[in-house]
Design a protein around this nucleic acid. Structure first.
Length: 829
RNA sequence: GCCGAAGUGGCGGAAUGGCAGACGCGACGGUCUCAAAAACCGUUGGGCGGCAACGCUCGUGUGGGUUCGAAUCCCACCUUCGGCACCA
């Protein structure tokens, strides 16, 4: 059949686009050929593209497709640009939901988890992504958690892990520890009992040791909002730690320290506040105050941290009956306990300066405590204060510092404090050490045993992994089965061989996901977490993508892990992810988060079955900007399907061709082709997938129109057009592009081809439409040559009749000309 | 509450200092059909005027400001979303 004969065909007369057949065919072929296997020995530059691994929650969700299909497109684009691309996938498989399922179904969490892995892997494969499945990792498999345990031992060895008491939610009825999620309105979600906090010995990692280095983002290409959130999370503040004297009979401590960012206001301290959890509270409280203080502390321990940190609600507190001495003045101030002071921040105690701190001011007003200003603030008339004073003015009521201006006062007071031994200048962080202990079964066991003689002893590396029992029995209480599993619990001490008990806590799942990116590079290594040579070759990750909900915790923990690994000599770089992109959340059609309870969950499988993976990928990328997410409304998906049909018909349907290289139609076609390559290349490189697809749709619409109007173009220009379109589509719709490529008689595979390049001269337009405004309102549109000089634009603009009409009787004050954009004539009168 | 984002037609969005509404959905009208679906073609922000091509005018959460010019920059407010350390 000649091409001119094909032109006569109406769309639909070409063999129909059959996505299901095409997708099955190519997925099988790719798998058979190992097209997406990533070689380690490859001369091309490496590119490590990584998408956050999914949690094994059951079924694959639209959100997983939304996260992975665009990142697959980006990875494929890199591949076509000459990189040896590593794009692995795995499963985050430990965690609370598996235990809930186990309790509900009376099975082992492993059963539920690994069944989910199987199902989700199958669902993921329908996407046609270039995942290298030979490198899959599952964090709950012993081959993997052996190395998670190894990391724990390493951190312990380097003094980055330690034990201390920390509070957990405790359900007195179920006799079990609860996660934050399991506490609903201060009650146990299972039995509705009122919960409280309980202190347990738990393991921590010293992330605070890296606080300053974690504030250095200079080598990262990360979104500003993530950097800003991490910066605030770390919360560095400069100030001083000041000592206050304590003299309570029967109490060993002779001082209490506070951290303050305003040491210059120390002469204005009129009271002192200690966090309710602070052990000192119980010790210093006087007999008369005991009942009131205990009741207050009990109430405070039932609140969540978010409630505690609220600055809006009325401040409450109770006087302990005790006093501390302000060393600067030698005077006593009363000690209160109040829930607006957090035990986990600073020293868990603050000095109350109501004259210069609004929270302290409110507190003093409420409880009738004195208010002493220590600055003569320019806005203050010397009368009674109605609010705390801000910065500014000179010091008063401050002994030797009276007259010191704000700006010099802090260093002066700190220097004096250090000379007198009253305290010292210091830096405090909001960041706390990372609590990794979980009183749960479905996690990597902490590899430590407790021996009566030797205490806490790390399990030797050669004994790893400490395996989870495969016959765990979940009792209805929800208590971790490890605590009553005798075969797991009783062991011998690695040091003395005497009887010992295993640590029954497991590790936070964030630990599993803090190093998984390193395991993908050498996932089957039985000797080490990964080989040094492969680490040098592949790490760090070049491009990481995932949800913004991980902006702080996961991403900060992983950065900490990497820095610790560097200091332990395990890797030679300091940051795990060079570039980061956060995709937005995909919501249900109602604009709400998809969840089973809302009944707005739409399964990706049914959509893929109905439309094909390529259509579904296209639709998700076309929805809107990837970083914004948005509501998923399946009623729009047919638009994507229609477009792919137009592509099919345009590429395979043909057009009337003849040797007409110089004809305007041919020039126009080549301009469209090169302009589209330019636009798509710019968009895909910046993850602007929605506008990339819009540009491809416009191009397809143009080609369709060209065909239907019976235009005659040069054969080479047409070949260039259909080839370019196919190559531009390859990262987006991998199956369709492969099929179109084959049907054009091109060699397998389209995915190993080079990305098309454009010629800027061919892409450029000869003329541009330029609006002419009079006082900002468009009155005329001119076709001007590209980059027309100002005098030409001015002359043409002033020659316009409709412009003249609006200029009549007025004086031209100014004429603004922005080449290729607009002319604006500003008139007076 | 604190930290971080976002508000544009009936809907998803485009435009990030220069023509507001690209591209798509939906809707309406048409072609094809016995009919419907599909497919294809056309119209589609509101108001006013015109038989019409078109012209005028309002319009990007609310109020103010900067600028020749603001969806875009600044200030204040309102609403929605993400995170807040044991959901992952």
């Amino acid at each position: 059949m000649t091409e001119s004969a094909q032109t006569k065909q109406r769309p639909g007369q070409v063999e129909r686009y059959d996505p299901r057949a095409i997708e099955r065919k190519w997925q099988a072929r790719w798998e058979r050929d190992g097209l997406y296997r990533t070689p380690d020995d490859d001369p091309r530059p490496k590119w490590y593209a990584l998408t956050m691994l999914p949690y094994t929650s059951g079924d694959l969700h639209i959100g997983h497709w939304y996260a992975m299909a665009p990142s697959d497109t980006a990875a494929r684009y890199k591949r076509m640009n000459g990189y040896n691309v590593l794009f692995p996938m795995g499963f985050d498989a430990f965690g609370l939901p598996a235990e809930n399922a186990a309790i509900k179904n009376q099975t082992h969490p492993a059963e539920w988890t690994f069944a989910n892995v199987e199902r989700m892997r199958g669902q993921l494969k329908l996407m046609g992504a270039m995942f290298d499945w030979d490198r899959e990792v599952v964090t709950a498999s012993p081959d993997y958690y052996k190395w998670t345990q190894w990391w724990f031992l390493k951190l312990l060895e380097h003094d980055l892990a330690y034990k201390k008491k920390a509070s957990v939610w405790w359900c007195p009825n179920d006799q079990t520890v609860l996660a934050n999620e399991q506490v609903v309105d201060g009650r146990c979600e299972r039995c509705d009992a009122v919960v409280a906090k309980r202190d347990l010995e738990q393991w921590f990692f010293r992330i605070t040791r890296y606080a300053d280095e974690l504030l250095d983002f200079s080598k990262l290409e990360w979104p500003d909002q993530v950097i800003s959130m991490q910066r605030n999370w770390i919360g560095r503040s400069e100030g001083a730690e000041l000592r206050f004297g304590l003299d309570v009979p029967g109490v060993a401590e002779k001082e209490v320290r506070v951290f303050t960012t305003r040491p210059d206001t120390v002469y204005g301290v009129t009271f002192f506040v200690v966090a309710p959890e602070h052990p000192l509270v119980e010790q210093i409280t006087t007999l008369e105050q005991r009942d009131a203080v205990r009741a207050y502390v009990d109430a405070a321990r039932k609140q969540s941290e978010i409630e505690r940190q609220s600055t809006e609600g009325e401040k409450t507190g109770v006087f302990t009956g005790a006093y501390v001495i302000n060393l600067f003045t030698g005077k006593q101030v009363p000690v209160w306990t109040a829930d607006y002071v957090l035990y986990t921040y600073g020293t868990g105690a603050v000095m109350g300066v109501p004259g210069h701190d609004q929270r302290d001011f409110d507190f003093a007003k409420k409880y009738g405590l004195p208010i002493v200003p220590v600055y003569k603030h320019p806005d203050w008339d010397g009368g009674e204060l109605t609010a705390a004073l801000g910065h500014g003015g000179t010091m008063i009521n401050s002994g030797p510092f009276d007259g010191t201006p704000d700006g010099q006062s802090i260093p002066a007071v700190v220097k004096y404090a250090e000379q007198q031994g009253y305290g010292r200048g210091t830096v405090n962080y909001r960041l706390r050490d990372w609590l990794i202990s979980r009183q749960r079964m479905w996690g990597a066991p902490i590899p430590v045993v407790y021996c009566e003689k030797d205490g806490a002893v790390p399990v030797p590396e050669s004994d790893l992994p400490v395996l989870l029992p495969d016959d765990a029995e979940f009792r209805p209480t929800g208590e971790s089965p490890l605590t009553y599993h005798e075969r797991f619990l009783y062991t011998t001490c690695p040091l003395c061989g005497g009887p010992a008990r295993r640590e029954t806590d497991t590790m936070d799942t964030f630990m599993c996901s803090s190093w998984y990116q390193m395991r993908y590079i050498d996932p089957h290594n039985p000797e080490r977490p990964f080989s040094r040579e492969l680490a040098k070759q592949w790490l760090p990750v070049d491009q990481y993508t995932g949800g913004a909900e991980h902006a702080v915790m996961h991403l900060l923990y992983t950065r900490f892990f990497t820095k610790a690994a560097r200091d332990m000599g395990v890797v030679e770089f300091a940051e795990p992810f060079t570039r980061l992109f956060n995709q937005g959340q995909i919501l249900g059609p109602d604009g709400q988060r998809m969840s089973k309870s809302r009944g707005n969950v739409i399964s990706p499988d049914s959509q893929v079955e109905k439309w094909g993976a390529d259509t579904f990928r296209t639709y998700l990328m076309f929805l809107g900007p990837w970083d914004e997410g948005g509501p998923y409304d399946p009623s729009g998906i047919n638009g994507a399907y229609r477009w792919l049909n137009r592509v099919w018909n345009a590429v395979l349907g043909g057009i009337e061709t003849a040797a007409k290289a110089g004809a305007p139609e041919t020039r126009e076609l080549r301009r469209w082709t090169h302009r589209t390559i330019e636009k798509v290349t710019a968009d895909i490189a910046q993850f602007r997938f929605n506008t990339m697809i819009a540009a491809l749709m416009e191009y397809t619409n143009y080609l369709t129109k060209l065909r239907e109007t019976g235009a005659v173009v040069d054969a080479d220009a047409w070949r260039e057009a259909r080839e370019s379109l196919t190559l531009l589509l390859a990262p987006i719709v991998p199956h369709l592009a492969e099929e179109l490529w084959e049907r054009q008689g091109k060699p397998y595979s389209v995915h190993t081809q080079a990305w098309p390049t454009f010629d800027a001269a061919l892409a450029a337009a000869d003329e541009v439409e330029v609006p002419v405004q009079v006082n900002g309102k468009v009155r005329e549109r001119l076709m001007l040559p590209l980059d027309a000089p100002e005098d030409v634009a001015r002359e043409r603009a002033l020659a316009s009749a409709s412009v003249q009409q609006h200029l009549a009787g007025k004086e031209i004050a100014r004429l603004i000309y922005v080449p290729n954009r607009l002319v604006n004539i500003v008139v007076k009168g």
